[in-house]
Design a binder for these strands. Structure first.
Lengths: 341, 341
DNA sequence: CGATTCCATGGGAACGTTTCCACGGAACAC
DNA sequence: GTGTTCCGTGGAAACGTTCCCATGGAATCG
């Protein structure tokens, strides 16, 4: 494989000059520019990134560690972040933590070793372990979607309050008084925040809070199914359920199907996170939507700020209720304002 | 940040000895092993991967370039490949080509520069451009899902023939004679193969092939909707449709919904690619299933073989029809053998 | 016309590892 | 006792860049 030495030799200039031309340094004559450019093309020279990074201490790479790319929410996030990073000249290392702290730590360690310029993370756990390491080392980091108490890094999150409040209000206005909640794990900030938002919203709509109506899942499909089953088997089951993420909503739906019941007719359902497929369901799903794409883009922006030594403000994006058909009985479906995808 | 020099100094040994201990080289005394290990821990030393790679010419990284992680098929593939890679000590660089040759080439160039040890690729285009570059440079490469004519690298693909044949047979046995096909782009091997399989299967079931019944999409959601619309607006629309991938199937479904028609009752639908959500639709979708997880795992295995200098055989995985409810009218639904998720 | 500035250039050190080579001492065989 | 082998160790070169510094010639200024 050709090195910059070969290029310099072929162009009849020194290594320094070759390096300057390749780096776009203006302190070069048109003549050497032309010769080096020609040599680069002729030898099909590609600078060795390892050597560049070793010398310049920049790797032009970002680490993106999400819980699971198979979750459409994170897939969207990964896509948005990767594209935004690419536009800024960064390549993205993707890791899946599989909602497990040990895998997260393992991956963060790899990212430290690789000397990535910055890390984008949907954090899990309490900020000890590898998260403490990256903070201590001062590696530029931005948290996305979730935060960690006591860890002071910029974040991009969604304010679930408004959306969930709208959701409860909407259900209440449709006559629902027993509204179940399939919550995320309380070890995540989103799990805690959404549960609190739900509790608040109940109070604001003057609905009684019944602990029986809350199930604590883990943001994975299976726990959504388990939660729905538990709720529907109550002596007085809820007439409406809110699921705190898309995967648990999917699990809830499959559970309802297995019970030979129908969403919208037998039980209303609202999911947090909007994903394309929810519009295809019959009935299409009412959701609390958050702008994942924007989130990814903004997060990369913040991270680049941090890398640049600036101290950006955290960003909180709004959430919003999108009413579709899953929150009305079949008979009413026609009369509801719907918004497709 | 601590370097191996600092470690050696702290341990009271030479850099060479420190390096040996850290690398697990057996030519070390228990005494120096203990001291170096202690020093590593005390200084929280992490070897600089750039320097290691520069010297050893191995980066322990794989490049994975898929069309779009937001496509559940590729998300599954990415997850499987990433986990398999991690188990073998590799970290994965993920790229999205967005089904575009120029983005694919751009990313492949990045991977060349990064000196990844191997590349996993769902190739797009005709094997010119950057694909030719990586082959010429002898960079270990494995194609997944798709192949490229005339490019001789190991591949892991799915044999669509059996599945599509079963699909047509199944539809034919249900009395369908006009079966539409929303095809993938003919610039991809899977696009060509699945179309051919469909045509063959029609002949085997003694059904007439009508060019009107085939629409050529691009594996994206929008083209599935467009295809379905075109098919349903024919003078004699098909009574059943096969979509060549999950995204186009999703588009087709949304189109059917918009026409106020119902899958299964007004038109039967079979999708290629099984994704979890298809089991949640009402009616649940009959699919031709391929084992994505296995595909990713095997592909990484092949790639590691190639990296190791071996010359592994390409692998072809089978596809299989999974009958659910979307291929029966509502009335018949009860009598069909179904298989959940 | 001499002094100063500017600019393109080349030499060479440095980044943090790995790895080749040489060395010295202990253990062993005769 | 000498000669051979073996093993742990340290020194130093190398990987492919970037970038600081010095150099010399052209251009500019008074």
């Amino acid at each position: 494989m050709a090195t910059i030495r070969d290029v310099a030799a072929a162009a009849g200039v020194s290594v320094s000059t070759a390096s300057r031309v390749i780096a776009g340094n203006p302190a070069t004559s048109p003549a050497s520019r032309a010769q080096v450019t020609a040599a680069v093309k002729a030898l099909d020279f590609r600078p060795n990134t390892q050597a560049q990074s070793l010398r310049s201490t920049r790797t032009n790479s970002l680490g993106l560690l999400v819980s699971d790319v198979r979750n459409p929410f994170f897939a969207d996030l990964a896509h948005a972040a990767e594209q935004a990073g690419l536009d800024a000249g960064y390549v993205t290392l993707l890791g899946n933590a599989n909602e497990r702290v040990d895998q997260q730590d393992r991956y963060l360690n790899t990212l430290i070793q690789r000397r990535v310029d910055g890390i984008l993370l949907t954090p899990h756990g309490d900020g000890s372990g590898a998260i403490a390491d990256i903070v201590r080392r001062g590696i530029p980091t931005v948290f996305v979607d979730r935060t960690v108490d006591g860890v002071d890094v910029p974040t991009v999150t969604t304010d679930s309050n408004k959306g969930i409040q709208q959701a409860v209000q909407h259900l209440s206005s449709m006559g629902h008084t027993r509204i179940g909640f399939i919550s995320g794990p309380q070890s995540t900030s989103t799990g805690r925040e959404r549960w609190a938002a739900y509790t608040n919203a109940l109070a604001m709509s003057s609905l009684a809070a019944d602990v029986e109506l809350v199930y604590f899942g883990d943001y994975q499909t299976a726990s959504g199914a388990a939660g729905m089953q538990k709720l529907m088997n109550l002596q007085t089951p809820p007439t409406a359920v809110i699921a705190a993420d898309s995967l648990m909503a999917m699990g809830a739906i499959s559970c309802v199907h297995e019970m030979k019941l129908k969403i919208g007719r037998d039980v209303a359902l609202i999911a947090f996170d909007d994903i394309e497929m929810f519009t295809l369901l019959d009935p299409s799903l009412t959701v609390v939507s958050n702008n994942v794409h924007e989130m990814g883009k903004l997060a990369v922006g913040l991270l680049i700020d941090v890398i640049g030594g600036r101290n950006p403000q955290s960003i909180v994006l709004p959430s919003e209720l999108i009413i579709r058909s899953s929150t009305s009985s079949a008979e009413q479906a026609g009369s509801i304002i719907t918004r497709g995808h």
